[in-house]
């Protein structure tokens, strides 16, 4: 039991570390480059850890605490997520709500820290992040509600542990839910087509532009927090897919890494970033998609022959 929980947490950390590596390698290969080593992002992290920091005179204590809140909240959110049949550290009735709001805390910390610098660019990023956060929240909650409706539970561990003999309806809904969560991962991780993390123009940034004034350890914390957040969403998507295929940890872990890693890399290599004004449409579409999946789930549960 304890070992399972420990393994769960370690695997989540592994997923968090592996996903950026997979994305970077694959993207480089698809562009025909040799690419940086798989663990380049960890070396960058070590570099950041060794650096000093520059703080703007405008900022207050809030600016210095915010990275810790961001990383702390992302880390706690990660502890809710089971890796297939393993047990997460924290699990109780309604933990899906706790998960969503802990991540909202992380977002609020960064948004306020960005406002703290008094920079027009960072204000812009904060404004966008707050708006996109507000728009993606319904999609996330309806997604969770779909799972809760179909499985009859309100905690991740119990939802994903629901496994009858092969059930076409459950398979369908779970796969649709996995797709939805994957799309949400794109938004929450600040990836294409919502945002291009490689952009060099501040005016077009969202997430990155909020952190312009961070350096050294603060920047490292924000990076780490971002990885953990991505890993949490990737694992939810993978769990949903694994429930109806092979519900074992040794299957779900690589699935989470590959599903997110490959899809992000492919999308980023083949698509252009949305025009910013199109982003809101993208998010609203996401909520509409979630509502549609919920409705499909509802109809399937009513057992109408379609």
């Amino acid at each position: 039991m304890l070992i399972k929980t420990l393994l769960n947490t370690l695997l989540m950390a592994a997923v968090a570390i592996a996903i950026p590596g997979v994305i970077n390698r694959l993207r480089a290969r698809m562009a025909g480059r040799k690419g940086a080593p798989f663990f380049q992002h960890l070396r960058d992290a070590r570099l950041l850890a060794a650096k000093g920091s520059v703080y703007s005179d405008t900022t207050t204590l809030l600016f210095r605490v915010a990275p810790a809140v961001y990383l702390g909240a992302a880390a706690v959110a990660l502890l809710f997520i089971p890796v297939a049949d393993l047990e997460p550290l924290i699990s109780f009735e309604g933990d899906i709500i706790c998960f969503a709001y802990t991540l909202a805390l992380a977002r609020a910390a960064l948004v306020l820290a960005a406002m703290d610098t008094g920079s027009s660019f960072e204000g812009m990023g904060a404004s966008r992040e707050a708006l996109y956060g507000a728009l993606v929240e319904p999609a996330l909650m309806i997604g969770f509600a779909t799972l809760a409706m179909f499985c009859g539970y309100t905690s991740f561990a119990e939802i994903f542990a629901v496994k009858q003999s092969f059930d076409l309806h459950l398979t369908l809904v779970m796969l649709l839910a996995a797709y939805l969560f994957l799309r949400i991962t794109f938004v929450e991780a600040g990836r294409m087509p919502v945002e291009d993390p490689r952009t060099h123009l501040e005016l077009t940034m969202i997430h990155e532009v909020m952190c312009l004034d961070y350096s050294g350890i603060d920047m490292l914390m924000i990076r780490l927090g971002g990885w953990l957040k991505t890993a949490a969403f990737a694992m939810i998507a993978a769990d949903a897919a694994a429930t109806v295929t092979c519900f074992r940890w040794w299957f779900a872990t690589p699935l989470a890494i590959l599903l997110t890693g490959v899809s992000v890399a492919v999308v980023e290599s083949t698509q252009a970033r949305n025009k910013l004004s199109r982003n809101t449409t993208f998010m609203v579409t996401l909520s509409a998609l979630a509502a549609l999946i919920f409705f499909i789930g509802y109809l399937l549960q009513l057992d109408i022959n379609i």
């Binding site: 520059v54 703080y55 005179d57 405008t58 810790a68 702390g72 920079s119 350890i217 603060d218 914390m221």
Partner: peptide, 24 residues
Amino acid sequence: AVALLYTVKVRAQRRRTLSHGPTW
């Protein structure tokens, strides 16, 4: 978790150079 992370950060920053400047 937040308190721990903040303390670790502050302790680590003691060994590093911290400077102030205008907002970037």
